[in-house]
Design a protein around this nucleic acid. Structure first.
Length: 572
DNA sequence: GCCGTTTTCGGCCCGACTGTTTTCAGTCG
């Protein structure tokens, strides 16, 4: 049993209990337990006493034990027998929560989306208590969009739009301060919309200016403190702007940066001190006094907490521990170890890539073109690799203060063997192995295949370990705990691929790999053009979200230390 | 269901908005 599976069962239990109409605090207790399991530093199967997890008491601990032992929960089975399986997914409809779903089920016998559609079309919903014509129309709209999964925008696409909008907002004379907030500020891999917090004494004027921007295609909401619009700026995205008084700016920025879960922890913390936190400030009910702040740092200070950077605000322990890690920064990064050239499917020469890297201030790079089996990408034969090595040597002779390593991104073949024999690998400075075929094999086959590659002493790094493509392809069905364990045992480093579509390993796995297994990682762009080296920005952001420090990432090593490590992996 | 240097009972984060109501429940972030 993996922590992800256990957490999923606890979440389902919470959802079902909520639909059943259980005490909301009890429901929340199960949600908290699910979070605690996800964020536990101890591997879940090594957890002897679940009640040691925060928010887990006797009751939930017993449920956890039962699930660990039997793989299921009697309580959950009972509710499943009581309530139709189609109900939980109805929560995805905007405006529909557990209470309304229960009414629909009880009064109309609605058990799923199809029956709801029929009830709405027959006009039967509007007569229910708490419902009306407007609500029925909104439901009809939600049902119409049911199958159009809202695709979240990639961070890398959202960033330039946010930057343009930020500049635009700054140009409005009545605007005193502007910051982007929300998941963009937390640098999540995808964002749903763009949030801005604006300080102004004249909210109505600013709101007017925003709705009048030429890129605005639709005004969704236009109130005194909030404007929501759809904009078309290369991509169509919703923009929410919150307008607050200047003295409220910092509290509002913190509030709208989130995450929701982080905010909840912050408010609990304030409550322990007898205060109340909202988007308007920290309120002391005893003295009837409101504290406001000039910088976020002051706000955390007031609560007796170390400053938490936006990337960590996910309630993964950042509010509960006395000292936070000194996160990796772009200035710590010394070289990119995964990129392609014209030798396979890249667009530039070795020298062009090297010069681009040097302009970024790097001390080294590794050229890692594809291996022979990957025909679609013009993979290199052993002979090609020899000739490429000659070219790399020449480039190294011409460059000053920059080392180009000769590497390869070698396919792990569907049968688990590697694409070159050891004699070829030992000639290379650095070997990355990765899976590009046979994605749909079963978990056991895929996992063994990857572990076999890690056991080869010549393999230094596993690239994009789960193979997911955000919004496009799910991760391979790997047992990542076994992969982590093998990485630890063999000293193999797992990659955080900084391609904005991959960002794989993701933040959550990075934190787990570091804390539970003591792993180190490599962050690389997998660039196929010189411009793509700039993707390292979102890679570093993801690493920060994964709580990584410079020491956890081999790309922060000096060239000498890196060479030592490369040799050491081979038993040198 | 969980939790406790004010507590073993009575709380559990906070406020805005919507649509339903005529003072508020439900939903959302």
């Amino acid at each position: 049993m993996r922590s992800g599976q256990l957490a999923a069962i606890l979440k389902e239990l919470a959802d079902m209990m909520e639909l059943k109409g259980e005490n909301p605090f009890k429901v929340n207790a199960y949600r908290r337990a699910a979070r605690a399991v996800e964020n536990s530093r101890v591997p879940i199967d090594a957890l002897e006493r679940p009640e040691e997890l925060p928010g887990v008491g006797k009751g939930t601990a017993a449920v956890i034990r039962e699930i660990m032992e039997t793989g299921q929960s009697k309580q959950l089975d009972e509710i499943r027998n009581l309530l139709p399986a189609g109900l939980p997914e109805l929560m995805r409809l905007p405006g529909l929560g557990p209470k309304s779903i229960h009414v629909l089920y009880r009064e109309l016998g609605v058990t799923g989306i199809e029956e709801l559609r029929q009830a709405v079309e027959a006009g039967r919903v509007r007569h229910l208590p708490g419902f009306g014509e407007k609500k029925e129309r909104n439901l009809a709209e939600g049902i119409r969009k049911w199958n159009k999964r809202p695709v979240r925008t990639l961070l890398i696409h959202a960033l330039p739009v946010a930057e343009t909008l930020e500049k635009r907002l700054r140009q409005i004379p009545q605007v005193e301060r502007v910051e982007p907030a929300g998941s963009l500020r937390r640098r999540k891999e995808t964002v749903k919309d763009l949030d801005f917090v604006v300080a102004t004494e004249h909210p109505a004027v600013v709101a007017e200016r925003i709705t009048a921007m030429p890129e605005v295609t639709q005004v969704l909401n236009h109130g005194e403190t909030k404007v929501s619009v759809m904009v078309e700026m290369g991509l169509a995205i919703q923009v929410d702007v919150r307008l607050v008084q200047p003295e409220q700016f910092v509290s509002a920025l913190h509030h709208f940066t989130g995450s929701k879960e982080h905010n909840v922890r912050i408010r609990q913390r304030a409550k322990e001190l007898g205060w109340k936190v909202s988007e308007y400030g920290i309120f002391d009910p005893e003295k009837e006094e409101v504290f406001t702040f000039r910088e976020e740092r002051e706000m955390f200070d007031k609560l007796g907490l170390p400053f938490v950077v936006p990337e960590l605000r996910e309630d993964r322990g950042e509010v509960d521990i006395p000292t936070l890690p000194e996160l990796l920064g772009i200035e710590d990064y010394r070289g990119d170890l995964h990129m392609h050239t014209r030798w396979s499917d890249g667009s530039a020469t070795v020298e062009e890539m090297a010069i681009a890297a040097q302009k970024r201030g790097y001390a080294y790079i590794a050229i890692t073109d594809h291996s022979q089996s990957l025909k679609v990408a013009s993979g290199l034969t052993a002979d090609d690799l020899k000739r490429q090595r000659e070219e790399i040597d020449q480039v190294n002779d011409r460059l000053d203060g920059m080392t180009v390593l000769a590497g390869v991104e070698m396919d792990i073949l569907p049968d688990g063997s590697l694409d070159y024999p050891d004699e070829v690998l030992q000639e290379l400075d650095l070997v990355i192995a990765s899976i590009h075929s046979g994605f749909r094999q079963d978990e056991e086959t895929l996992t063994s295949r990857m572990i076999a590659a890690m056991e080869n002493p010549y393999v230094h790094i596993i690239a994009h370990p789960t193979g997911r493509l955000i919004n496009r392809r799910d991760p391979y069905g790997l047992d990542l705990d076994r992969v982590f364990e093998a990485a630890k045992r063999t000293g193999t480093v797992l990659e955080l691929n900084a391609n904005p579509h991959r960002l794989d390993l993701n933040d959550w796995y990075l934190k787990r790999g570091k804390e539970e297994y003591g792993l180190r990682f490599s962050i690389n762009t997998d660039a196929h053009t010189p411009e793509m080296l700039s993707h390292i920005g979102v890679g570093i952001a993801t690493a920060r979200r994964g709580w990584l420090e410079a020491e956890d990432v081999i790309n922060t090593y000096s060239i000498d230390r890196l060479k030592d490590w490369l040799a050491q992996k081979r038993g040198g």
